[in-house]
Amino acid sequence: MSLAERLRTALAVDHSPLLLPGDHFEFDPAVRGNPAAVLIAITDRTAPGVILTQRTETLRSHAGQVAFPGGRIDPEDDGPIGAALREANEEIALPPAAVQVVGTTDSYRTVTNYLVTPVIGVVPPDLQLTPSEAEVASVFEVPLDFLLDSANQREQVTEFLGRERRYYEILWQDRRIWGATAAMLVNLSRRLRWAA
């Protein structure tokens, strides 16, 4: 079974209440979030990896953070998949034709009220990716097994706007993957475990 087929099987498993819905659990589902999408690009190799970006320090929001390529869904996009592919092309020069789209997975609502749809795609290994100087400081790959290992997914607690906030972080080499990016990886790892 190919990597794409294994991922499709995992995405087909029924939703579980153990998935993380968002940065705050008290969100009213009737309140619409701003639609956004990210690309979880998984490299098709014996030991698959996930392509991530380090955002530049000059951005107004989330400066310096590790993220998936992605952003707001524009009216001219063909839904979340179109937005994720467009953003990945703009941010890291990942050609849309190089992505074998597997599908979308569970949306995640951020503290800034974006409703983010992760798009799962399989890409060839060792693509020549070029970060957009305005947005992306670097592009790197982290082993999928490392990211999906629950032992590496650490739950943290902090105070935010006078309230306790829980979030996940994953530390890999000198990188700190946390917040919505880590939460979406936690959700993906739970889906893959249920499908095993």
Rank of each mutant, 00 (worst) to 15 (best):
L3C: 06
E5L: 10
R6C: 04
R6Y: 06
R6I: 01
L7Q: 00
L11F: 02
L11R: 00
V13T: 11
D14S: 15
H15E: 13
P17A: 08
L20N: 12
P21G: 01
F25N: 13
E26H: 12
A30F: 11
V31Y: 11
G33T: 08
N34L: 12
V38W: 01
L39K: 04
L39Y: 02
I40Y: 04
A41Y: 04
T43D: 01
T43M: 00
P48I: 00
G49K: 02
V50L: 00
I51G: 01
I51H: 00
I51Q: 00
Q54M: 10
R55K: 04
E57M: 06
T58C: 08
R60K: 11
S61Y: 13
Q65S: 15
V66Q: 07
F68Y: 03
G70S: 09
G70E: 05
D74Q: 15
P75D: 13
D78C: 06
D78I: 07
G79F: 08
G79S: 08
I81N: 05
A83D: 00
A84R: 05
A88P: 07
N89P: 07
E90L: 07
A93L: 12
A97G: 08
Q100E: 14
G103W: 03
T104L: 04
T104Y: 04
T105R: 05
D106Y: 13
S107I: 00
R109K: 06
T110G: 03
T112H: 14
V116P: 01
P118I: 06
V123T: 00
V123R: 02
P125Q: 03
S132F: 04
S138Q: 07
V139G: 01
F140K: 01
V142G: 01
L147P: 02
D149G: 09
S150C: 07
S150P: 08
A151M: 10
N152T: 09
E155P: 07
Q156F: 10
T158W: 12
T158Y: 14
E159V: 12
R163L: 10
R163K: 12
R163A: 14
R163I: 09
E164D: 13
E164A: 13
E164R: 13
E164N: 13
R166H: 15
Y167M: 11
Y167I: 09
I170S: 04
W172S: 02
Q173E: 15
Q173P: 10
R176Q: 15
I177M: 05
W178V: 12
G179C: 05
A180V: 07
A182R: 00
L188K: 02
S189L: 05
R190A: 09
R193S: 11
A195Q: 03
A195R: 07
A196S: 13
